[in-house]
Amino acid sequence: MPEKTSQTAGTIIPTRPTEWPTIILAFVIHGGFFALTGWWQSLSPIVAIIVGGWLIAWHGSLQHEVIHGHPTGIRWLNDAIGSIPLSLWLPYPIYKDSHLEHHRDEFLTDPIEDPESSYFTKAAWEQLGATGRLLARWNTTLFGRLTIGPAVMILSFLGQEWRLIWTNEPGRRRIWAAHGIGVAAVLFWATLVCGVPLWLYLAFVYTGAAMTRLRSYAEHRYAESHEERTAIVENSHFFGLLFLYNNLHVLHHRRPGISWYRLPTVYRQNRETLVCSNGGLVYDGYWDIVRRFFLKPHDDPKHPRHS
């Protein structure tokens, strides 16, 4: 069926009914954040870090859902739900633009065209130097991706953004100024009102980033056909909820408008077609990924089309 549309200021905007499971989820995540920061002293540091990391990663999954037009037909309201910077380092507007660019499937894994690619061009690989190449190879193992991976991701992103700000990329300073206000509000609440030590909050952020890196670790790999570059991780109910079933990644790329809570059912109904279309790139849960790649590279970090 064609999507219903409404016209606002000359722009046709797809409309959809309000998705209450996602609204409830947003309240759960933000309520959990307030509860954790308010009562963190009643938990051991390890438990607090695990819970905080889960909430940060879960919030990132919610942001991903919002980017794809959920949970309402009101664009500004969706963006408001996704814009609270619990992770501190990633401005929502930049994440939104880069992720939608990532969804040009014909360019998946390309280190120039795909902003979420983990591959290197030949020139970028040579510029890393011996130590950089060693770290990059370590980062292709799951152990490396979970340990140094968050630091590599965050620091490389901030370095790129600093260069854009320095060269006065249009709109970048405005985005970061607004983001800075949001970060200040989050840290004011957590550290000054609730007394959470800054090191502990940063541990929440790092752990959440590591959990997110687990999801993205084996999502894509280069193949000649772009349809075979996206994986499926089945039988993962625990992490599936954390990732809002984005582990069924082929289905998400084929139909990014499907709500997270509908993905498992739609996947089961179309499993044979989806597995055939991606060349059988299927993992039996995240333990299967751990077993295969914990200390072994997932792929050569040098992109075959740019080497």
Rank of each mutant, 00 (worst) to 15 (best):
I56V: 15
H64N: 06
V233D: 04
I289S: 08
L248E: 01
A203R: 11
V282Q: 09
Y201S: 08
T72K: 11
Y245T: 00
D284Q: 14
A231M: 11
A35E: 11
F157R: 07
G69V: 14
P297K: 02
M211N: 03
A209Y: 13
G132H: 09
R271S: 09
E234F: 00
K4H: 14
L36S: 01
A136P: 03
T72C: 09
V66W: 04
T11V: 15
L263W: 05
H179E: 03
I232D: 05
T167E: 07
L158S: 07
I84A: 02
R145P: 00
A9C: 00
V186T: 06
S156H: 12
A124V: 03
G10R: 12
R163M: 14
R145K: 14
L108K: 07
A218N: 08
L128N: 04
A35Q: 10
L43R: 02
A130E: 13
T22V: 11
L128R: 12
L108F: 09
D105M: 14
D79G: 04
W125P: 03
T121F: 08
T37E: 02
Q160D: 14
F294P: 01
L43I: 04
H252Y: 09
R133W: 08
P264D: 04
F107R: 02
R75S: 12
W138G: 03
S87R: 01
G69F: 11
P297Q: 15
A151H: 07
A136L: 11
P14K: 09
Y222E: 10
Y286S: 07
F34L: 15
R213S: 10
S225V: 08
L134R: 13
S61E: 07
A48T: 11
A57H: 10
L251M: 11
L135H: 00
S156D: 12
G182A: 03
D114R: 04
T147E: 00
T18R: 12
L135T: 04
E113R: 15
A209W: 04
G195D: 13
P111E: 08
I49G: 10
L134V: 11
A218F: 01
A209C: 12
G31F: 11
E227V: 01
I67N: 02
G159I: 05
L242G: 00
R271W: 02
I112M: 07
L135G: 07
